[in-house]
Design a protein around this nucleic acid. Structure first.
Length: 298
DNA sequence: GTCCAGGTTCACG
DNA sequence: CGTGAACATGGA
Protein backbone atom coordinates (compact mmCIF):
# COMPACT_ATOMS: atom_id res chain seq x y z
CA UNK A 1 0.00 0.00 0.00
CA UNK A 2 1.26 3.45 -0.90
CA UNK A 3 1.57 6.18 1.67
CA UNK A 4 1.97 9.28 -0.45
CA UNK A 5 2.51 12.51 1.50
CA UNK A 6 1.50 15.45 -0.68
CA UNK A 7 0.64 18.25 1.76
CA UNK A 8 3.32 19.02 4.32
CA UNK A 9 1.99 19.37 7.84
CA UNK A 10 -1.17 17.45 7.22
CA UNK A 11 0.40 14.02 6.84
CA UNK A 12 2.68 11.89 8.90
CA UNK A 13 3.99 8.36 8.82
CA UNK A 14 4.48 6.47 12.06
CA UNK A 15 6.98 3.71 11.48
CA UNK A 16 5.78 1.03 13.81
CA UNK A 17 5.21 -2.71 13.71
CA UNK A 18 3.39 -4.79 14.43
CA UNK A 19 0.27 -2.66 14.55
CA UNK A 20 -3.23 -4.01 13.91
CA UNK A 21 -5.03 -0.73 13.45
CA UNK A 22 -8.49 -2.19 12.96
CA UNK A 23 -8.27 -4.40 16.02
CA UNK A 24 -6.89 -1.56 18.10
CA UNK A 25 -9.41 1.08 17.12
CA UNK A 26 -12.39 -1.25 17.11
CA UNK A 27 -11.71 -3.43 20.14
CA UNK A 28 -13.95 -1.65 22.58
CA UNK A 29 -11.39 0.61 24.24
CA UNK A 30 -12.25 3.75 22.27
CA UNK A 31 -15.67 4.49 20.85
CA UNK A 32 -15.26 7.27 18.33
CA UNK A 33 -13.51 5.64 15.37
CA UNK A 34 -15.36 4.89 12.18
CA UNK A 35 -14.09 2.95 9.22
CA UNK A 36 -14.59 4.03 5.64
CA UNK A 37 -12.89 2.68 2.56
CA UNK A 38 -9.92 1.22 4.35
CA UNK A 39 -9.20 4.13 6.65
CA UNK A 40 -10.30 5.18 10.11
CA UNK A 41 -11.52 8.61 11.15
CA UNK A 42 -11.82 9.95 14.65
CA UNK A 43 -11.09 12.91 16.90
CA UNK A 44 -8.01 12.93 19.12
CA UNK A 45 -7.00 15.86 21.27
CA UNK A 46 -9.60 18.06 19.60
CA UNK A 47 -8.27 17.32 16.12
CA UNK A 48 -9.90 15.43 13.31
CA UNK A 49 -7.68 12.50 12.31
CA UNK A 50 -7.67 9.91 9.56
CA UNK A 51 -5.51 6.82 9.89
CA UNK A 52 -4.56 4.17 7.40
CA UNK A 53 -2.35 1.21 7.88
CA UNK A 54 0.41 0.56 5.37
CA UNK A 55 3.48 -1.63 5.04
CA UNK A 56 5.75 0.70 7.01
CA UNK A 57 3.29 1.42 9.78
CA UNK A 58 0.49 3.94 10.10
CA UNK A 59 -0.18 6.89 7.83
CA UNK A 60 -1.92 9.77 9.59
CA UNK A 61 -3.74 12.76 8.16
CA UNK A 62 -5.21 15.81 9.88
CA UNK A 63 -7.35 18.71 8.74
CA UNK A 64 -5.10 21.45 10.12
CA UNK A 65 -1.29 21.61 9.90
CA UNK A 66 0.62 19.84 12.66
CA UNK A 67 4.19 20.57 13.70
CA UNK A 68 4.69 18.02 16.42
CA UNK A 69 2.94 14.67 16.07
CA UNK A 70 3.78 13.50 19.56
CA UNK A 71 0.21 13.75 20.80
CA UNK A 72 -0.93 11.22 18.20
CA UNK A 73 2.02 8.90 18.59
CA UNK A 74 1.35 8.88 22.29
CA UNK A 75 -2.33 8.14 21.76
CA UNK A 76 -1.47 5.28 19.43
CA UNK A 77 1.35 4.07 21.69
CA UNK A 78 3.67 3.65 18.74
CA UNK A 79 6.76 3.72 20.95
CA UNK A 80 5.77 0.53 22.73
CA UNK A 81 7.90 -2.49 21.84
CA UNK A 82 4.85 -4.69 21.53
CA UNK A 83 6.55 -8.03 21.02
CA UNK A 84 8.60 -7.51 24.10
CA UNK A 85 5.52 -6.66 26.13
CA UNK A 86 3.67 -9.72 24.87
CA UNK A 87 6.67 -11.91 25.67
CA UNK A 88 6.13 -11.19 29.36
CA UNK A 89 2.70 -12.84 29.36
CA UNK A 90 2.45 -16.36 30.77
CA UNK A 91 2.31 -19.24 28.30
CA UNK A 92 -1.14 -20.68 27.81
CA UNK A 93 -2.71 -22.22 24.70
CA UNK A 94 -5.77 -19.98 24.59
CA UNK A 95 -3.85 -16.80 25.25
CA UNK A 96 -1.12 -17.79 22.79
CA UNK A 97 -3.78 -18.33 20.17
CA UNK A 98 -5.18 -14.85 20.77
CA UNK A 99 -1.71 -13.32 20.60
CA UNK A 100 -1.00 -15.06 17.30
CA UNK A 101 -4.35 -14.32 15.76
CA UNK A 102 -4.43 -10.64 16.58
CA UNK A 103 -0.76 -9.73 16.99
CA UNK A 104 -0.54 -5.99 16.55
CA UNK A 105 -3.53 -5.17 18.73
CA UNK A 106 -2.37 -2.43 21.09
CA UNK A 107 -3.62 -0.52 24.08
CA UNK A 108 -4.29 3.14 23.36
CA UNK A 109 -3.43 6.03 25.66
CA UNK A 110 -6.65 8.01 25.71
CA UNK A 111 -7.69 11.23 27.36
CA UNK A 112 -8.62 10.25 30.94
CA UNK A 113 -11.82 12.29 31.13
CA UNK A 114 -13.13 11.02 27.81
CA UNK A 115 -12.24 7.49 28.85
CA UNK A 116 -13.90 7.78 32.25
CA UNK A 117 -17.04 9.34 30.83
CA UNK A 118 -17.30 6.79 28.04
CA UNK A 119 -16.98 3.84 30.36
CA UNK A 120 -19.46 5.27 32.85
CA UNK A 121 -21.84 5.20 29.90
CA UNK A 122 -20.80 1.67 28.97
CA UNK A 123 -22.35 -0.32 31.79
CA UNK A 124 -24.75 -2.96 30.49
CA UNK A 125 -24.74 -1.47 27.03
CA UNK A 126 -23.60 -3.02 23.78
CA UNK A 127 -20.53 -1.44 22.21
CA UNK A 128 -22.66 -0.27 19.33
CA UNK A 129 -24.92 1.60 21.75
CA UNK A 130 -21.98 3.06 23.63
CA UNK A 131 -20.68 4.49 20.37
CA UNK A 132 -24.07 5.98 19.62
CA UNK A 133 -24.53 7.65 22.99
CA UNK A 134 -20.94 8.99 23.04
CA UNK A 135 -21.35 10.40 19.55
CA UNK A 136 -24.60 12.04 20.54
CA UNK A 137 -22.95 13.63 23.58
CA UNK A 138 -20.20 15.03 21.36
CA UNK A 139 -22.56 16.23 18.67
CA UNK A 140 -24.81 18.03 21.12
CA UNK A 141 -22.23 19.38 23.55
CA UNK A 142 -18.79 19.16 22.00
CA UNK A 143 -17.16 21.80 19.80
CA UNK A 144 -16.95 21.59 16.05
CA UNK A 145 -13.47 20.66 14.90
CA UNK A 146 -12.07 21.49 11.46
CA UNK A 147 -12.47 18.74 8.88
CA UNK A 148 -11.49 18.47 5.23
CA UNK A 149 -14.12 19.89 2.93
CA UNK A 150 -15.09 16.47 1.64
CA UNK A 151 -15.54 14.97 5.09
CA UNK A 152 -18.59 14.97 7.38
CA UNK A 153 -18.68 17.30 10.39
CA UNK A 154 -16.88 16.26 13.54
CA UNK A 155 -17.05 17.29 17.19
CA UNK A 156 -14.68 17.16 20.10
CA UNK A 157 -15.53 15.25 23.25
CA UNK A 158 -17.06 17.84 25.61
CA UNK A 159 -14.80 18.84 28.49
CA UNK A 160 -15.89 17.92 31.99
CA UNK A 161 -16.92 21.49 32.81
CA UNK A 162 -19.32 21.49 29.91
CA UNK A 163 -21.01 18.30 31.03
CA UNK A 164 -21.02 19.45 34.65
CA UNK A 165 -23.19 22.41 33.66
CA UNK A 166 -25.89 20.15 32.26
CA UNK A 167 -28.79 18.76 34.25
CA UNK A 168 -29.55 15.14 34.86
CA UNK A 169 -32.70 15.45 32.80
CA UNK A 170 -30.64 16.73 29.86
CA UNK A 171 -28.50 13.62 30.04
CA UNK A 172 -31.45 11.29 30.44
CA UNK A 173 -32.98 12.89 27.38
CA UNK A 174 -29.95 11.63 25.47
CA UNK A 175 -30.82 8.05 26.42
CA UNK A 176 -28.31 7.57 29.20
CA UNK A 177 -30.84 6.12 31.61
CA UNK A 178 -29.56 5.32 35.10
CA UNK A 179 -26.05 6.28 34.00
CA UNK A 180 -27.03 9.95 33.71
CA UNK A 181 -26.49 10.89 37.37
CA UNK A 182 -23.22 8.95 37.40
CA UNK A 183 -21.84 10.88 34.45
CA UNK A 184 -22.98 14.15 35.92
CA UNK A 185 -21.34 13.48 39.28
CA UNK A 186 -18.10 12.45 37.61
CA UNK A 187 -18.13 15.57 35.45
CA UNK A 188 -18.66 17.73 38.52
CA UNK A 189 -15.86 16.00 40.39
CA UNK A 190 -13.42 16.41 37.52
CA UNK A 191 -14.44 19.98 36.74
CA UNK A 192 -14.18 21.06 40.36
CA UNK A 193 -10.82 19.40 40.79
CA UNK A 194 -11.93 17.11 43.59
CA UNK A 195 -11.09 14.29 41.18
CA UNK A 196 -7.63 14.90 39.70
CA UNK A 197 -7.39 12.34 36.92
CA UNK A 198 -3.86 13.25 35.82
CA UNK A 199 -2.77 13.11 39.44
CA UNK A 200 -3.80 9.48 39.64
CA UNK A 201 -0.78 8.62 37.51
CA UNK A 202 1.45 9.34 40.47
CA UNK A 203 -0.40 6.95 42.78
CA UNK A 204 -0.06 3.22 43.12
CA UNK A 205 -2.46 1.08 41.15
CA UNK A 206 -4.48 0.25 44.26
CA UNK A 207 -4.68 3.88 45.35
CA UNK A 208 -5.65 5.16 41.92
CA UNK A 209 -8.26 2.43 41.59
CA UNK A 210 -9.74 3.17 45.01
CA UNK A 211 -9.94 6.85 44.16
CA UNK A 212 -11.85 6.19 40.95
CA UNK A 213 -14.18 3.78 42.71
CA UNK A 214 -15.29 6.56 45.01
CA UNK A 215 -17.25 7.95 42.09
CA UNK A 216 -20.83 6.69 41.97
CA UNK A 217 -21.34 4.28 39.11
CA UNK A 218 -17.65 3.44 38.94
CA UNK A 219 -16.84 -0.04 40.23
CA UNK A 220 -13.84 -2.24 39.79
CA UNK A 221 -14.36 -2.92 36.09
CA UNK A 222 -14.86 0.66 34.92
CA UNK A 223 -12.04 1.85 37.17
CA UNK A 224 -9.69 -0.68 35.59
CA UNK A 225 -10.72 0.41 32.10
CA UNK A 226 -9.76 3.99 32.91
CA UNK A 227 -6.51 2.90 34.54
CA UNK A 228 -5.57 0.72 31.59
CA UNK A 229 -6.80 2.72 28.62
CA UNK A 230 -5.89 6.22 29.74
CA UNK A 231 -3.60 6.33 32.76
CA UNK A 232 -0.88 3.91 31.79
CA UNK A 233 -1.50 1.20 34.39
CA UNK A 234 -0.63 -1.84 32.30
CA UNK A 235 -1.36 -4.15 35.19
CA UNK A 236 -5.03 -3.20 35.38
CA UNK A 237 -7.25 -6.03 34.19
CA UNK A 238 -10.91 -5.18 33.59
CA UNK A 239 -13.10 -8.25 33.94
CA UNK A 240 -16.34 -7.92 32.04
CA UNK A 241 -18.70 -10.61 30.79
CA UNK A 242 -16.49 -11.46 27.81
CA UNK A 243 -13.26 -11.71 29.74
CA UNK A 244 -15.08 -13.69 32.40
CA UNK A 245 -16.16 -16.26 29.83
CA UNK A 246 -12.66 -16.40 28.36
CA UNK A 247 -11.05 -16.93 31.75
CA UNK A 248 -13.53 -19.60 32.71
CA UNK A 249 -13.24 -21.58 29.52
CA UNK A 250 -9.45 -21.42 29.32
CA UNK A 251 -8.36 -21.64 32.93
CA UNK A 252 -11.33 -23.13 34.80
CA UNK A 253 -13.05 -25.44 32.32
CA UNK A 254 -14.43 -27.73 35.02
CA UNK A 255 -16.08 -25.27 37.33
CA UNK A 256 -17.56 -21.79 37.42
CA UNK A 257 -15.61 -19.44 39.67
CA UNK A 258 -17.23 -16.27 40.90
CA UNK A 259 -16.34 -12.89 39.45
CA UNK A 260 -14.42 -12.07 42.59
CA UNK A 261 -12.32 -15.19 42.30
CA UNK A 262 -11.56 -14.49 38.65
CA UNK A 263 -10.48 -10.96 39.51
CA UNK A 264 -8.23 -12.34 42.23
CA UNK A 265 -6.79 -14.86 39.78
CA UNK A 266 -6.10 -12.17 37.20
CA UNK A 267 -4.23 -10.08 39.76
CA UNK A 268 -1.62 -12.74 40.34
CA UNK A 269 -1.42 -14.56 37.05
CA UNK A 270 -0.61 -12.23 34.15
CA UNK A 271 2.23 -10.05 35.36
CA UNK A 272 3.11 -6.37 34.88
CA UNK A 273 1.41 -6.10 31.48
CA UNK A 274 -1.69 -8.04 32.39
CA UNK A 275 -3.91 -5.52 30.67
CA UNK A 276 -2.55 -6.57 27.29
CA UNK A 277 -3.56 -10.15 27.99
CA UNK A 278 -6.98 -8.91 28.95
CA UNK A 279 -7.40 -6.97 25.72
CA UNK A 280 -6.34 -9.90 23.55
CA UNK A 281 -8.69 -12.24 25.39
CA UNK A 282 -11.52 -9.75 25.12
CA UNK A 283 -11.00 -9.14 21.44
CA UNK A 284 -10.64 -12.79 20.60
CA UNK A 285 -13.73 -13.74 22.56
CA UNK A 286 -15.78 -11.16 20.70
CA UNK A 287 -14.31 -11.98 17.29
CA UNK A 288 -14.83 -15.70 17.62
CA UNK A 289 -18.38 -15.81 18.83
CA UNK A 290 -20.84 -13.07 18.26
CA UNK A 291 -18.90 -10.08 17.04
CA UNK A 292 -21.80 -8.75 14.97
CA UNK A 293 -19.73 -7.35 12.15
CA UNK A 294 -17.85 -10.56 11.66
CA UNK A 295 -20.64 -13.04 12.10
CA UNK A 296 -20.07 -15.80 9.60
CA UNK A 297 -23.02 -16.96 7.57
CA UNK A 298 -23.13 -20.72 7.49
C1' DG B 1 -42.07 -10.49 23.02
C1' DT B 2 -37.69 -12.15 25.17
C1' DC B 3 -33.00 -11.89 26.14
C1' DC B 4 -28.90 -9.46 26.84
C1' DA B 5 -25.44 -5.71 26.76
C1' DG B 6 -17.14 -4.08 28.15
C1' DG B 7 -21.75 -3.02 35.60
C1' DT B 8 -22.84 -1.01 39.96
C1' DT B 9 -25.25 -0.86 44.04
C1' DC B 10 -28.17 -2.18 47.69
C1' DA B 11 -31.00 -5.38 50.29
C1' DC B 12 -31.21 -9.72 52.23
C1' DG B 13 -29.74 -14.37 54.33
C1' DC C 1 -19.16 -13.02 52.60
C1' DG C 2 -22.12 -14.55 48.75
C1' DT C 3 -26.39 -14.05 45.99
C1' DG C 4 -30.09 -11.70 43.60
C1' DA C 5 -32.71 -7.86 41.89
C1' DA C 6 -33.19 -3.13 40.31
C1' DC C 7 -31.56 0.17 37.33
C1' DA C 8 -33.01 2.49 31.56
C1' DT C 9 -32.59 1.74 27.00
C1' DG C 10 -32.29 -0.33 22.65
C1' DG C 11 -30.11 -3.92 19.59
C1' DA C 12 -30.32 -8.81 18.22
Amino acid sequence: MVCAEPKPGLHHLFRVRPYDLAATLDSGQAFRWTQSSGSWTGVVGGRWVRLRSCAEGIAAETAAPVKDWGWLGDYLQVQVDLNRVLDTLPPHPQLASALTQHRGLRLLRQDPWECLASFILSSTKQIKQIKQIVERLCREHGDRVPTPATEPEAWSFPVAGRVADLRETDLRAMGMGFRAPHLLRAAQAVASGSMDLEGLKRLSLAEARASLMNLPGVGRKIADCVLLFSLGFDEAFPVDVWVMRALKSAWFPNRSPSLKELVRFSESHFGPHAGYAQQYLFHQARSNSSFPRLKVIT
